[in-house]
Simulated scan of single mutants.
Amino acid sequence: MAVMDHRPTLDAIQRAPKVLLHDHLDGGLRPETIVDLARDEGYTGLPTTDPDNLRVWFEEASNSGSLERYLETFTHTVGVMQSAEALTRVAYECAEDLAADGVVYAEVRYAPEQHTRSGLTLPQVVEAVLEGFKAGERDHGIRIGTLVTAMRHQARSMEIAELAVRYRDDGVVGFDIAGAEAGYPPTRHLDAFEYLQRENAHFTIHAGEAFGLPSIWQAIQWCGADRLGHGVRIIDDIDATDEDAPVLGRLAAYVRDKRIPLEMCPTSNIQTGAAKSIAEHPIGLLRRLHFRVTVNTDNRLMSGTSLSRELHKLVEAFDYGWDDLQWFTVNAMKSAFIGFGERLELINGVIKPGFAQLKWRGARPLA
């Protein structure tokens, strides 16, 4: 009797309509663009001006297992993103690259405060990025929302939150805080989160990546986060000694019961030491327990990855089929910060039909 090959290939996954919620604009530049912008803007700090060698340098520098070391690579990408022209170009190319990977909806985040060294104001930074994304949407048929990010070790979160509200009708769909977690709890920015809640605005918080359960607890219970950026350490509140009957602690049960989305980035989590390997990544258990898990890229340049590659790694590690990949994708679309009607239209009009066609093509008998 013939059996069916349910394992999606990388090529097939690239054709699937995908959704990406956690992608950093300054972590996804093309090496060629970094070299061009460094020359145009007089930035002299690059370790090499050969694009191929530069790509290798970024990937190798990001494999230290330390979040702090990982974040150091952003010195160079942020360094060449200090003009309106550079920001617009990077945003446009981001839209182009994501669309080429089959992404139909993406939320891309960046920290406006990091792009003002050459005199740009915060609104000018936001407007330059929006210009690039709007052009990319028009030319490549992708829908992109942006998240403006505040750095958790700085004191400008209220300013950035106000930007999120000011530009929410122009393409900014939410707010985020990022940076090293240890020593910089999200509660330091409580006034910004309370302001966003009063304004009915959406926000996510980087939590549970390099730091443990207290970071997740504060992000949810004190700050009211709609989603968790990474949230990998929620696994610390699950006793999986009995693989057939894992026991959830109160925080893990709350996160699952409330359907709080987890923006997981497998390759990046390994690079920063939040997980040991793809096969040991908490995403496997969390998917089995039906947490609201989503799959993301984090920083495509540093991790040498794409959303298709992230999904394919999970296929190889956990023997996932099309139904699993569709589950991750629908989770992400349900969790997006755009309106319910638009989310539903993408799920029913693009994602489910796209996966149905791929499943039909992939269901071929093996001799």
Rank of each mutant, 00 (worst) to 15 (best):
T187L: 11
V330Y: 04
L262Y: 10
P31C: 11
K334N: 11
G171H: 05
E263M: 11
S157Y: 06
A210F: 02
A99V: 07
Y105T: 04
V125I: 12
R343W: 04
D242T: 08
A367D: 13
P51R: 11
Q154L: 15
P186H: 05
L46W: 06
R188H: 13
L130N: 09
K334L: 14
N299G: 03
S268Q: 04
N331T: 04
N348D: 13
D11E: 15
G273S: 07
G231T: 04
L248R: 10
L196S: 01
P185Y: 07
S62Y: 06
H6L: 13
D244L: 10
A332N: 05
P185M: 13
R168H: 14
Y195P: 02
R7S: 11
D97Y: 00
H281L: 08
H76S: 07
V232Q: 00
S62M: 03
F318S: 05
D101R: 05
S268F: 10
D319W: 10
R30I: 08
Q221T: 15
L262G: 05
E243R: 14
K334W: 03
S66A: 02
V56Y: 09
L346I: 15
D298R: 04
D239A: 12
P112W: 06
I238W: 01
W217H: 13
G341L: 10
K258V: 09
L358D: 00
V56E: 14
C223F: 11
D97C: 06
D176F: 00
L87Q: 11
L29S: 01
I347C: 08
G136R: 09
L286P: 00
Y43E: 12
F203G: 00
F74W: 03
R288L: 09
V165N: 03
V104H: 05
E342Q: 11
S277V: 12
T297A: 14
Q114L: 15
V173T: 15
A356L: 08
T77K: 04
A95H: 06
R287M: 10
G231L: 01
D244K: 12
G79R: 07
V350H: 01
G273C: 14
T329M: 02
L122Y: 13
A274M: 07
D26C: 10
G284K: 05
P17L: 04
I160V: 15
D50C: 05
W217V: 09
H230V: 10
M151P: 00
K334D: 06
D52E: 14
A100G: 01
D52M: 12
A106N: 05
R152K: 14
I351G: 04
N53R: 15
V148L: 13
R259I: 06
K313L: 15
D36V: 02
L25H: 07
H140P: 00
E96S: 09
R109P: 00
L122W: 05
F291H: 08
V35L: 07
I220W: 02
I205F: 00
D170I: 06
P186M: 06
I338R: 03
I278H: 03
E59W: 06
R233P: 09
D176P: 03
A180K: 13
R287S: 09
A164K: 04
E68G: 09
E209Y: 05
V293N: 03
F291T: 07
F175H: 08
M302S: 11
G27R: 02
I235N: 00
G183M: 09
H140A: 02
D319Q: 13
R166N: 02
